[in-house]
Amino acid sequence: MNTAISLGTLRLKNPVLVASGTFGYAEEFKNLIKVERLGALVTKTITLCPRQGNLPPRIAETPSGMLNSIGLENKGLDNFIKEKLPHLKKLDTPIVVSIAGESLNEYAELAKKLSLKGISALELNLSCPNIKAAKIKNQRGTLISQDASATYKVIKAVRRSTKKTIIAKLTPNVGDISLIARAAEDAGADSISLVNTFLAMSIDIKSKKPKLANITGGLSGPAIKPIALRMVWEVARAVKIPVVGCGGIMTASDAIEFIIAGARAVQIGTANFVNPKAATDIILGIKDYMRINKITNINKLIGSLKV
């Protein structure tokens, strides 16, 4: 049975990745699961300078989902290279580093400085709802990947700075996702991952206060899966580069839906919080499905939707 797939120059032994921000830098998971079984792991997003993140409360549970507004808390690039990367390199699974910049130059600088041995690819976080694209395009309150030309410019700048595989992670908070996806492809992205979280909110009716200090946050979990699936299907039809599907995947059958819809790989996110074994269970489940359905090569399953 062949479960290997490729994204750009990156070869993965199976199509299951863990999503940025849901797996830390793998340290905590090392004693819970066999990390080397993963297709690849995507780190928590790194920014050039350390970020304190948003005020608490930062999370709230919603029906079959959760809201978060962490605000990209991380210790910055230098700390990552010094403290986290040496441990990550020892893992026998490809490492994808997620990056976010506050300007074009920052994205380019991060990409250049992370063109290191042991890093397999870069995922551009173009979609975190909590960082403003204001400095890139003189707009307030928009995200980079809500704007096709800003998306194009950032990816182009990163493309010039690195030979690594580039995965562009898009926000679903747009009218026409295909438009943004095509801009990413035109700028030289090797792959597109979607969706990041949906901008959402929740209110405590007793205190009349929002449940998040940031008022709004990103919705993830099973609640968003059908919408994410629809968007992945749209993007897979709109671009030639491989699509990595993400959004509320809890089980192997969820993952298989995304693959049938056209995703070459999938990312497991919120499920990692609920069940640390989710990703490795999903890998086993996909293999079971292939065995039962006599599919010898995963590539035969990708985009096999019958319409």
């Binding site: 921000g21 849901t22 797996f23 830390g24 905590e28 998971f29 819970l32 928590k44 993140g53 608490p56 930062r58 999370i59 959760m66 978060n68 962490i70 808390e73 919120t270 990692n272 919080f273 640390p276």
Partner: peptide, 10 residues
């Protein structure tokens, strides 16, 4: 959310 230091939510 996670309880073991990954989600940075608490």
């Amino acid at each position: 959310a996670c309880g073991f230091g990954v989600c940075m939510g608490c």
